[in-house]
């Protein structure tokens, strides 16, 4: 009979939380500081949750965009059960969100970041911007929408400050109700932590008949729990700008490989 000490931990799927963050020049000052603090709190909270998570192995990847884009987690997604320290970002440059989408698309693949032997769950992707794109993001967005990991991800958007392009961010996350708009930096920090924790713990929580994993659902929970003012709602007629195709019925099989 095998020694109890020879058994290994249960196999778990990986669950990736992606942060795609605007660090352009307009973020300078209090905004970048709030973002850094928010990210620090998010990663600390996720680290705590990761240590006792029997449902998924939590990983985090951070992509910043300004003039071009760059992975802050340079070695690929970081295992949150290991030592991971969030490094503060600096603001400067343009708002090349198209470049970020292109880069994200290239890594959302089983041949890139999502290459675990046990496979992965649908990722969580959190976008944050305070401005308007300075590159042509339409083509990159059209391409990433064809990526099944992206289209099935839980996507949430933050539109920060006085003049964010809420239409663009709504287009990217695919639903204006999955976007929160705020100028209140303290509220932003609390919201970032709430949506990060809630989205990454959905697989570990008891569900009701109403539970969904959509960004829209998580944003509505955040608004209820944190008493978010009405002004944070992004009210757009999604039909006018959202070109995300209807979700294709998923007909993947157990042996499915290359497409992922």
């Amino acid at each position: 009979m095998p020694s109890i000490n020879s058994l290994t931990d249960v196999p778990r799927k990986e669950l990736h939380v992606f942060y795609v963050l605007d660090t352009s020049g307009s973020m300078a000052g209090q905004k970048i500081s709030a973002l850094n603090h928010a990210m620090e709190e998010c990663t600390e909270a996720l680290k705590t949750l990761a240590k006792s998570n029997g449902d998924a192995k939590l990983k985090v990847a951070v992509l910043e965009f300004n003039s071009g884009c760059k992975w802050v987690t340079i070695n690929g997604p970081e295992d949150l059960e290991e030592d991971f320290e969030y490094e503060y970002l600096k603001a400067g440059g343009l708002t090349d969100i198209g470049a970020a989408l292109k880069e994200l698309n290239s890594k959302l693949s089983r041949h890139a970041f999502l290459n675990s032997m046990t496979g992965a769950l649908m990722p969580v992707i959190i976008f944050m911007t305070d401005g308007y794109a300075t590159d042509d993001y339409d083509k990159a967005l059209a391409e990433i929408r064809q990526n099944r990991w992206f289209s099935r991800a839980t996507k949430i958007g933050f539109a920060l400050g006085d003049s964010p392009d809420v239409k663009m961010i709504s287009e990217i996350v695919g639903n204006s109700e999955a976007v929160i708009k705020t100028t209140d930096l303290d509220l932003f920090k609390r919201l970032m932590r709430f949506v990060s924790v809630t989205a990454s713990m959905l697989v570990s929580q008891s569900h009701t008949t109403e539970t969904e994993s959509s960004g829209r659902h998580i944003v509505s929970l955040a608004k209820e729990d944190l008493n978010v003012p009405q002004s944070a709602n992004v009210q757009l007629n999604d039909n006018q700008y959202n070109k995300e195709p209807d979700p294709v019925p998923d007909n993947s099989t157990w042996d499915d490989d290359d497409e992922w």
Binding site: P11, K13, M122, D250, W254, D256
Partner: peptide
Amino acid sequence: LEGKRYLVAGLTPEL
């Protein structure tokens, strides 16, 4: 219930 089938690359809600 999580044998080989669980190891599929992307475990969608449908799977």
